[in-house]
Design a protein around this nucleic acid. Structure first.
Lengths: 239, 239
DNA sequence: AGATATATTTTGGTATGATCAGTTTAAAGT
DNA sequence: ACTTTAAACTGATCATACCAAAATATATCT
């Protein structure tokens, strides 16, 4: 119970208080997305603080993606993009990523992705199919020597499957994980003979299952795909 | 290709440039975790900028969790906590939450959580068991009228299961989702007769399965628990 | 000499006031 | 009615001064 004797007297700095106040207003939708905030000078009067303190609060809010500051124009409540949240995760991974995480990432994918494929088969719309099919074409056309692009396309395929699930929570949840894959490949990428062909075939199988709304087949196909990935990574992790 | 004609001349503000510079130094481990930055006055001279500009850069960095600022002491490179990244995701979910998402949240939990329970049964350490057991005790002792605390405890249980999986990716992934559960409950909480008893029994079953490293049983128990939740929500969502 | 209390210095936090540089708005001119 | 131009507004930066917390050095006492 560290909470009991936690600080009472505002260990909080003035600019932090201001930050909270504005943040709360946004969270409680008192300030709607797109709304224009009063100007710095006005806010200073309203809060009865100096411009210094106020501006530092605003800088923090903009750093967190809550507001957008346009010189000469004003400050606006911005729609918090997933990107902001994901950037934050990416930064975290960037600083703490190490090869020990790779098996855990694979484990997560092994467990989650087949179920996502199943959801995709159940919920997909036609336009999701277009994206998947186009992606497979991109992979086929991709220069075999451009491993970076190849990796990107493959990741995009999995992300597209997630999108086809039509469940935004799934998409938001998986996107940060997929963003890690290129890093993994950079670490242990192996240009295994026939790997690309196998991937294309696997993707096609998954695509067809989703197209036919065959949930079980989609599930199984994804299991196969991930297991293959698992094998390759395991093999190269031993080195 | 929006990139082609993108801005060249620093649409970047001075304080943003400073921010990037310091951020890069941290990313490239030129500044190690725990390292003390030069004082504000010193940095001003080094960058040849005013304190204002410098401070705003520092405020942003601290808002993003990259540095920690201690009044009277100095500024230190902080170990970016998962919490910072998760807070960002939480905020996003918080702002984009609406009741239409509830079925999709439940779907995600229905699909993911049983697998997480299985991982927990396979990987749990003894101290994870302590947490789970204590949590069940907390739920038993909890005032039945305090639905808020009850909800918090229940969420904590699921989070603890995720922690017992010993897979940090799972924890990071699920925590933002669990943080939404109290809000769901607030929307449609139903004080169903015997609901609490059922939950306690279910939690205990899950706990025992994890304790005994019985992965399949853990999986099934979690399925039962989530399905029950699903039922209740479905029932009350119709109203 | 060692421990304690006190004073000084260092460091971040806040407040003002002035100036610069984009944007927007309103006025002037055609 | 439209274009052009000037003014007003807004955020960005700078310089200075002073406050408050923390760390360090100094003095004091035992």
């Amino acid at each position: 119970m560290d909470e009991i004797f936690g600080k009472i007297g505002s260990a909080q700095t003035l600019s932090q208080k201001i930050e909270r106040r504005i943040e709360e207003a946004i969270r409680q939708k008192k300030l709607l997305v797109g709304a224009k905030l009063p100007s710095e000078r006005e806010l200073c009067e309203m809060f009865a603080v100096s411009r210094t303190a106020l501006r530092e609060a605003l800088r923090r809010l903009s750093a967190r993606g809550l507001i957008e500051i346009k010189k000469g124009s004003g400050m606006y409540v911005s729609e918090l993009k997933i990107k902001d949240a994901i950037d934050s995760l990416n930064l975290y991974y960037d600083l703490s990523f190490d090869s020990n995480l790779i098996p855990q990432i694979i484990e997560v994918r092994r467990v989650f992705e087949p179920e996502i494929a199943r959801m995709a088969a159940n919920n997909r719309r036609d336009k999701d199919l277009d994206l998947l099919l186009k992606n497979i074409g991109d992979l086929e056309d991709c220069d075999p020597d451009n491993t970076q692009m190849e990796a990107d396309i493959i990741n995009k395929f999995h992300l597209n499957v997630a999108k086809a699930s039509c469940n935004p929570i799934v998409i938001i949840t998986m996107e940060p994980i997929y963003s890690l894959l290129p890093r993994m490949r950079n670490l242990i990428y192996a240009n295994v003979d026939g790997e690309k062909d196998f991937t294309i075939k696997a993707h096609r199988t998954i695509y067809e299952a989703i197209r036919d709304k065959n949930a079980d087949k989609a599930f199984e196909a994804m299991v196969g795909q991930i297991n293959r990935t698992l094998e390759i990574y395991t093999q190269y992790l031993k080195k």
